[in-house]
């Protein structure tokens, strides 16, 4: 039996490259974070920072080539993920980890009814016979807020609105009662009022089922509202991590701080936004040393020369910056 206090998921120094022709895209460059049982961990980062690739690696969905995992470890419930035989992992992962993607239309199968698709895991994992599986699918559709689930189970994905499709995908992801749900920008493509409905549903399900959740997002507001922990990604690394209620009000990495100052806020008066100069890095030509240094107000020659250490600024609160303590202290 795994220890109940041990982390559910540990990503440790993960490195992933995409090789094509002469170019090497270093999508993930030593990312580390842990996810605890029943908690929501937000992976926050701008587009291209390596969030989805990290999620795909956990699910072992990366095709190789072009993807190559060149280092690091992933442990789920204490067991090695990357070294496990594929068939064994698929079975394990299919039961214990559910995944929700940003684009439901691309991840649902267009030629099968949604009822059939939700019933599929029960059949595949030998849990239930076909008829009972369909009944469970209908119940799940009802649970995720699809009106008239009996009738809608016979519809195809394209017959649902964006928000309803997202609900269908959530029903599929939670069907086998996973202990971890990975939600990759589950509401990014949706309007704010629909986004609020879907986030509410996800949090409800999480509490009801004691699921842990990895919530991948680029939205600081979403992190502030729902995350227990946050891992901030930049250039394929987790540059800051800790409890969201510690990190957001008092960040220790200049990138997290700059991001907070650059977005319009509703809780403080801002005369002018304080933008971050430049744009996110090209992962094929990452800057030397700290990947954020070309955009950082504090950068010194040190930051160009070497990768900064991980500094513990408070219990459970880490930042990868030579000046983390100063940033944390507001100096």
């Amino acid at each position: 039996m795994p220890n109940a206090d041990a982390p559910l998921l540990e990503v440790d120094d993960l490195r992933i490259e995409f090789r094509s022709g002469r170019e090497i895209v270093r999508a993930v460059n030593g990312a580390s974070f842990t996810v605890r049982r029943g908690e929501t961990t937000a992976v926050l980062g701008e587009s291209g920072s390596g969030k989805s690739v990290t999620a795909a690696a956990i699910m072992r969905l990366l095709a190789s080539p072009p993807a190559h995992i060149t280092g690091g470890r992933i442990r789920f419930n204490g067991a090695d993920v990357l070294g496990a035989p594929m068939a064994q992992w698929r079975k394990r992962c299919g039961r214990d980890i559910g995944m929700v993607f940003q684009d439901a239309l691309a991840s649902l199968n267009p030629v099968f009814t949604v009822g059939w698709q939700i019933a599929e895991p029960f059949k595949a994992h030998g849990v239930l016979p076909a008829k009972a599986a369909l009944e469970r699918a209908v119940a799940l559709l009802g649970r995720v807020g699809i009106p008239e689930p009996h009738a809608r189970a016979h519809d195809y994905p394209h017959q649902f609105s964006g928000g309803m499709r997202q609900r269908v995908m959530i029903a599929m992801a939670i069907a086998l009662d996973p202990s971890l749900l990975i939600a990759d920008e589950p509401t990014t493509a949706l309007d704010v009022t629909v986004q609020a409905q879907i986030m509410d549903l996800l949090l409800d399900l999480q509490r009801e089922r004691h699921m842990a959740m990895v919530l991948i997002t680029h939205d600081l507001g979403v992190v502030a509202e729902v995350a227990d922990r946050v891992a901030v990604m930049y250039g394929g690394r987790v540059v800051e991590s800790g409890l969201a209620r510690d990190v957001l009000p008092r960040p220790a990495h200049p990138y997290t701080l700059a991001l907070l100052e650059s977005v319009p806020r509703s809780d403080i008066e801002q005369q002018q936004l304080n933008p971050i100069v430049g744009s996110p890095p090209n992962m094929a030509t990452l800057p030397s040393g700290c990947a954020f240094h070309p955009r950082c107000r504090r950068a010194t020659s040190e930051c160009r020369a070497a990768r900064p250490p991980t500094v513990k600024v408070a219990p459970g609160h880490h930042a990868e910056c030579f000046y983390a303590q100063q940033v944390f202290d507001g100096r």
């Binding site: 986004q195 509703s266 809780d267």
Partner: peptide, 15 residues
Amino acid sequence: ALLSAQPRIDFAQNG
């Protein structure tokens, strides 16, 4: 409803 749905950073919790 629209304003209340916007995810926001609100450490003062006055939303």
